[in-house]
Amino acid sequence: MLINWFTVITQIINFLVLVYLLKRFLYGPIIKAMDKRQEKIDLHLEEARKKKEEADKEAELFLKKNREFDGRHEEMLSQIKKEAEARKAELIKEARSQVDADMAGWYGAIQKEKENFLQDIRRHAVKHTCAIARRAIKDLSNADLEDRITSIFIERLQNIDADDREALARTVQHPAEGIRVNSAFEIPGESAKKIVRLIQNLTTDSVVVRFGILPELICGIELKLHGRKISWNISDYLEPFEENMRATIEAKTGH
């Protein structure tokens, strides 16, 4: 007999026990773990779907903004161009005014320099002319330059015209600071007395004449009375020379 009924019954029991054991230790836990994993995956997928939706919304918003920006692009560009042009014009204006100010400064400085230069030339010219004149007079007439200058001054004082004499007389009568005769050199006593006498002749009141030495006069002598001046100065002869020098410099520099 191939069938052993005891074995059959035992195997049925064995099989049922095995079914229980596998349900307890295999199918149950495995299915549970798989379901749990599936839940997690579903959750992740749901999260991913939500995130994708959010991302889509963001992308849509971005595209919308982009389109709006594109729409406003031209307008903004032209506005920016206008602003840039205005700014450019403003900057150019500022630069020009700055340059003008600088140029004015430079021209002023050059002018000052020129004046100083001409002054120097004049001073030197006067000095040398004085020296030449002194020497020439000495050689020609064996006379002193200062004496000659004083003589000429006295001559001028004697030969002033009527209007000047009257004006001078008025001034001499009411001198504010006394009467002062300035010269670059010491006036000899005789000549000084002559000058005082000539001035005294202008008025009946007694006058006080003071003599002073001003080195900047170089070769000159002057009497100043409230805007009135009687003088002789070698620099007067040099004025055409100075004018000529100035014209030459201006022709060279173009100013």
Partner: peptide, 12 residues
């Protein structure tokens, strides 16, 4: 390989 086992399974 035992008919008893296969019978038991078939009975189940």
């Amino acid at each position: 390989g035992s008919l008893s086992t296969t019978t038991a399974l078939a009975v189940c």
